[in-house]
Design a protein around this nucleic acid. Structure first.
Lengths: 360, 360
DNA sequence: GTGAAAGCGCTAACAC
DNA sequence: GTGTTAGCGCTTTCAC
């Protein structure tokens, strides 16, 4: 291979053209596969390019075409397998259509998200997929829309914006699983989430996350339908880091009228909650029932295996990428919009609470 | 906000210059923060930019400066939390220095990796971090080196190449943990990995992965030192997908002279192995001992908690990004090169095999 | 089919 | 300090 080590200047179309003895324009046409080029010239050019080991400068290409073949993806936390899987769905799909992905992590911080979107726009990505940290602070997303750049939301929606969104209907599944818990005799159900809020939860409070808001709505509806009072004191937001999650878990489990079931808002928080339960020496499901969002593989390995709410995360990633690419290509939205439904997978972590106990 | 919806043409420096009544060059200087600009002009320009909601075209900027402020990251599988964490280390560090990350997934396929590297180079990234799928097929990496583009390897090394590599010394930790198993009375230790090879394992076989090769070397050394024969028949590569992993697990556990301990090559494969063990109705560690690479949080939740080999993955990601950025900035390599050591965390999944049983 | 020349939006020389 | 003029490496008219 003719890889001349210390070559500083990169080979350009001009170099190839010279070597192939054709005009720059002709060389560019042959190299870029556009316009009209005779077989003869194409051959000479390609040979020369090969010989010089020419590589196109995609930056320059993007500048005149206005297309970068790159999409930007903004998520809260790639470390979370939930987003890992979604990202995989996106990259797999993007690759198939010849798109690359620039990934930015925001740590669920809106300021970082605003920044990320700006950077991506400046880099002239062809479109954006965002899992918005907030469903309320969405001016930056609105302005993406306004600028005409394709945008698709993932996992959560953003206020009233009219934008394609690939997300699960959380109210439905939350309603279903709460009903399941109620039927199992649980009345004191705790919901623990890391969602950051200004103050502790109050009924009717405006939440930054549509996801969490919908879940609480679903829970409340199930309580209403059952004729029970919704235990507002067991909704615990701002659970924060691992230590703080364990503390909150202990709180709801050790209080005078303790929770008999705990719902974990996601797979990451679930780890700390289960740990805390084990540390307290409580048995699942004999002493406490447990239910979590996200069906990670490890949930089948615990004793007992955990009852979970599975979400089609990978498919949502795929759908988001597909929708975005359609937008980029100027195609109309797919109708009807794809629906994603979560499923309650009953394994062993939810136990029956007998009437006697319920009364306590 | 002056977000004029259907504006098609993007605002350029020329527009801002005109509005501020200065030359294009002056406007560019003010906007780009370089050269000399009077406070007066800077003010006018910035105001005009704000008014027109001007955004620089980073593509154009990159073209003349030759810097894209973007680094390319190529990994085998982001879905694997091992890489998820490493990627987090990279992106966190990159962001701090003003770099963005283009992430490409290869599915541990060398052809895809070659392609990924080419694409990234064409996009003129400032540098590359690669977790090479193969330690043998490394021509494409060598050519990155040759072209003078900064390159850092992550997680595994590539043959004899002289390139900065952030990886754990696998021979050491494998030796240590094998000794631990041997001392616990185990002689039949199975090693299961998804590494793809042409044929089944034979002693002294050239492996595509330096990681796996080193681990086997460490195991063999421990056996030699103990004066025991290394059970080549229990080295199982090509474990493939979940179903295939379970089959292999059953094989080594049900054969005439079965394995008494199983070592899982990574946290993903571990899931299927543990599942298979549970399905067989075998108890850990009473019937089989279990040890795995990667210390994922869930390994503390199983009964018993699993004994693992923890690797400083996040820090390796951080170090890789730091090293790459140093290279990009033309700084010399940090010496001595950072070392990363894995640690054996003894939890409950390795049991003592009494002499009577050893003899069987 | 082919070539000359004019951009894309910016930075970098070079004069003044 | 400021403006003029070249580029960066490609694509895209527009003649021929």
């Amino acid at each position: 291979m003719s890889s001349n080590g210390s070559r500083r200047r990169e080979i350009t179309v001009a170099d190839v053209a010279r070597a192939a003895q054709v005009s720059k324009a002709q060389a560019a046409r042959a190299l870029g596969n556009y316009g009209a080029v005779s077989e003869e010239v194409r051959g000479r050019v390609l040979a020369a390019a090969e010989e010089l080991s020419y590589r196109p400068n995609e930056l320059a290409r993007s500048m005149n075409t206005g297309k970068s073949n790159t999409i930007g993806v903004v998520v809260g936390d790639i470390e979370n397998p939930h987003f890992g899987l979604a990202t995989r769905g996106i990259t797999d799909t993007a690759k198939k259509s010849g798109y690359n992905v620039i990934l930015i992590n925001t740590d669920e911080d809106t300021a970082a998200e605003v920044d990320a979107v700006r950077v991506l726009l400046d880099k002239r990505v062809d479109g954006l997929i965002v899992a918005p940290a907030s469903s309320v602070a969405t001016r930056h997303l609105q302005s993406v829309q306004d600028s005409g750049r394709p945008l698709v939301l993932l996992d959560r929606n953003a206020g009233p914006m009219d934008v394609e969104t690939m997300a699960v209907d959380m109210a439905d599944i939350s309603h279903e699983s709460t009903k399941y818990l109620l039927q199992a005799g649980h009345r004191r159900i705790a919901f623990i989430s890391t969602l950051r809020t200004e103050s502790s939860y109050r009924a009717g409070m405006l939440l930054d996350s549509s996801q969490i808001a919908d879940r609480l709505e679903g829970m409340q509806q199930a309580y209403r339908e059952g004729g029970f009072d919704f235990p507002v004191d067991l909704v615990r937001l701002n659970a924060g880091d691992a230590e703080s999650i364990r503390r909150v878990t202990r709180e709801v489990l050790l209080m005078p009228d303790p929770a008999t079931a705990v719902v974990a808002s996601d797979g990451l928080i679930a780890l700390s909650i289960v740990e805390a339960i084990q540390e307290l020496g409580l048995a699942i499901p004999a002493d406490v029932s447990f239910l979590m969002y996200d069906d990670f593989a490890w949930t089948r390995l615990t004793t007992p295996p955990l009852t979970v709410i599975a979400q089609p995360v990978y498919n949502m990633g795929v759908a988001a990428a597909k929708a975005l690419i359609r937008q980029i290509q100027g195609l109309p939205r797919r109708t009807p919009a794809p629906k994603f439904t979560a499923t309650l997978i009953r394994r062993g972590s939810v136990g029956i609470r007998r009437a006697a106990e319920v009364r306590k």
